[in-house]
């Protein structure tokens, strides 16, 4: 049985200008521990789809099942990481942020602090447990956000362009770190990005989406051994393949 089933999901936005289709007829299946990238230009509905899976948006039609259970609103079976650094709570230390989900579950302080500490260690921030977010760099804040989303042990991790606002060098380091974290935790990950190289580096499978309305255009399996070498010929071939799919639909007119 697949871990995540997305069945013919559509979402229509009601705007003053009329009804605008955000996502149209998307169907997907994901197996356990799969790393899936949603790739596409802005406005293609990839973030909308992620927000539907997260339960922040309710689809106009269609259904989503996770582990066989229909998704209805947000739930702690999914962890979410956003692009915005401001997602961390400034009034909590790194440890306090990571422990938040566990605190909501009612886990005793000592236990949740220990779990949170281990999560911070996983993202290599064990030296910064007591720091407040405003004392951390953007990359560090995003790592805290990843640790926070993993701490209460959801089976699915949803990531909405988490590294898009970082500089190129930090982004590369973060992608390597995320690949390590994924290898260790074996979460099922849906990762939204508009960066082709990022998708090829991280994903088992890339879903290319097209805008107006947001639809699945193509599906590309990235069957390269890990850790991947972004300078290898195979890597560049995958990028070319994805760019070709994007190019057909994303011509600037």
């Amino acid at each position: 049985m697949s871990h995540i089933e997305i069945r013919d999901v559509s979402l229509v936005y009601d705007t003053p200008a009329g009804q605008v289709p955000g996502v149209q007829g998307v169907s997907l299946d994901m197996r356990e521990s799969e790393f899936l990238c949603l790739l596409g230009p802005s406005g293609c509905g990839k973030s909308t789809l992620l927000n539907i899976v997260a339960g922040f948006l309710t689809p106009t039609s269609g259904e989503i099942r996770i582990g066989g259970k229909a998704v209805n609103g947000h739930g702690t079976d999914r962890g979410v990481v956003f692009q915005d650094f401001a997602q961390l709570f400034p009034w909590r230390t790194a440890l306090g942020n990571v422990a938040f989900g566990l605190e909501m579950k009612g886990i005793p302080k000592e236990e949740r602090d220990e779990i949170a500490f281990n999560q911070l260690k996983l993202v290599k921030l064990e030296k910064f447990v007591k720091s407040y977010p405003h004392h951390l760099s953007g990359g560090m804040q995003q790592r805290v956000a990843i640790a926070r989303a993993l701490a209460y042990n959801p089976s699915v991790l949803l990531m909405d362009e988490p590294f898009a606002a970082l500089d190129a060098m930090t982004r590369d380091a973060m992608q390597r770190l995320l690949a390590d974290v994924w290898r260790e935790t074996r979460k099922t990950i849906i990762y939204v990005t508009h960066n082709v190289a990022e998708a090829v580096y991280l994903a088992d499978r890339v879903i290319v989406m097209t805008p107006h309305p947001g639809k699945v255009k193509a599906e590309v399996v990235i069957d390269l051994p890990r850790p991947r070498d972004p300078l290898s010929v195979e890597f560049l071939d995958c990028q070319k393949q994805l760019l070709a799919h994007l190019g057909e639909t994303h011509q600037v007119s």
Partner: peptide
């Protein structure tokens, strides 16, 4: 910030907890 509320909800905060741990300090 809406993103604080969303993050907290995603991590399982119900309304009373959202009040105390997010709205008030925020």
């Amino acid at each position: 910030k809406e993103i604080w509320v969303r993050s907290a909800q995603a991590m399982g905060a119900d309304n009373p907890k959202l009040f105390r741990h997010v709205i008030l300090p925020g």
